[in-house]
Amino acid sequence: MDNAEYQHKVSKLSLRNGQNYSRSLGQAGNLLSSITKRYSTIIASTPYEIVDEDKETNVAKDIIKKINDQIAQSQEGRLFAIVHLAGKQFRITEGDVLVVEGYWPPNCGDKISLDKVLLVGASDFTLIGRPLVQRGLVNIEATVIEKTLSHTKTHFRKKRRKQYKRIHFYKIPQTYLRINTVKVTGELNNPPEVRGLEKAIF
């Protein structure tokens, strides 16, 4: 291995904790190995780690390929997802029933798709959105099965010694949703195009 090639390789190595050691790279030949050696011998020191970017990207590619293969052969099994719906987050999977509280326009029998997906998981992998999973990658469909009112809630205010007492009763509209499908469509990093969501604010 000649010197230029070696230096190229060394320059791709960086320390994960963000410290800048680039100024010493010129003579870094035996130094780096000594650092790693020294730090590995200390029993409970700060866990410095040398990261090879090439290796990292290869590992990532490999994992993504594995997931894509699993999805293509539909061997991913049951999926669960975390969706953001009407101001709350729900962990859902196929066949669940969830209740959305407050005024919400959809009517009974309507089929809706839930697009604000924060996370999708299967038994072998988890896709975590930053903050949302790629648009169009996950297809979650739900049916509105019931619209009703909650139990009567009491709002009672009283101020002592001030002759002030108010009592107020109210009910909250509730909408029951049945989750029909939770599916990953298309490939990771290459999801199918979705139309009609241009104006949606996520």
Binding site: S74, Q75, G77, R78, L79, E94
Partner: peptide, 10 residues
């Protein structure tokens, strides 16, 4: 189950 379930969502 692992043998049978390969192609199922359950």
């Amino acid at each position: 189950q692992k043998i049978y379930c390969k192609h199922n969502s359950n």
